[in-house]
Design a binder for these strands. Sequence first.
DNA 1: ATAGTTGCAAACAATTTGCTATAAG
DNA 2: CTTATAGCAAATTGTTTGCAACTAT
Lengths: 161, 161
Amino acid sequence: MTHDLLRTELKRRKQRMTAQRELVLRSFLEADSDHLSAEEVYRTVVEKRQRISKATVYRTVDLLAEVGILRKIVFRDGVIRYEIAECGKHHHHHLICSECGKVTEFSMDLLENLEEVIEKKTGFRINDHQLKFYGLCPSCQRKKQALNKQEERISAKPTKD
Amino acid sequence: MTHDLLRTELKRRKQRMTAQRELVLRSFLEADSDHLSAEEVYRTVVEKRQRISKATVYRTVDLLAEVGILRKIVFRDGVIRYEIAECGKHHHHHLICSECGKVTEFSMDLLENLEEVIEKKTGFRINDHQLKFYGLCPSCQRKKQALNKQEERISAKPTKD
DNA sequence: ATAGTTGCAAACAATTTGCTATAAG
DNA sequence: CTTATAGCAAATTGTTTGCAACTAT
């Protein structure tokens, strides 16, 4: 259980288990979405009528990531999000719609071996990797297609150029 | 030449070629580092004693990315950077040191086919992907090792615990 | 001459920091 | 009782926007 893992790690570091740290961790465990931003965690906690400040959220997600319970993940909007670093090593990756921002996950273990290859090649000690695909989700493809047709109709009319 | 590509694209969009747009593009072409942030582009231009404002830099890198000359790339610090989207499709990927931020590039075409597989599986229309490895560069590995030894020496002394 | 583009300063958003009061061990 | 932590507000950092002045076409 992630909970105990946190307690143990905190003890090792001579840090304390607090209500706020529990609340943040719980937010991730109970969230609909994976990958929450600090802002989202904050809102989640506040909506449950629990007391926390944003500064604490920022400090806590950072701590949880350092301890290895969360993984930092940043899409192209530059907002820092976090997701639970699932126990085993089976990685999942992200498929992001450039239009609506929708994020879909999919798993693929193929890249674990690759880490080793690259370690040997470069001398880096790799401990994580992230693969992201960017494109248009089915729904946005349809929207864009509809838009294109519309534009064709307009540019069919003669312009003074 | 990337230069002409920009001119052509601008004409198509009824937009104009300006000194500032040239300066930004040139910054990328002549930069030591790939992946520059807007801030870095700004400084580069100013150091050459050329006139530009930050707002223009932001607007221009955005434009260049839209046109396909640059590619947006965001590491875990959440800062938006851009790199030249080299002509052919041969992708390169990034190896980032979590400690000092050093970025190393390496290429690998393996993932092109994968895009197709995922398109079929998910219905997304994929147009880009990014693979990043995080870890410790050789130099930071050494530093960390040295630090660990030091800590051992300290904790070897008895503590009142 | 007609838009598109710039620069500036102000607005905004995300994140960090300094400090006092509080609470965990 | 000691020291880590929380909360708050102010400071920083990265990015966007409104608008008047400017300039490519």
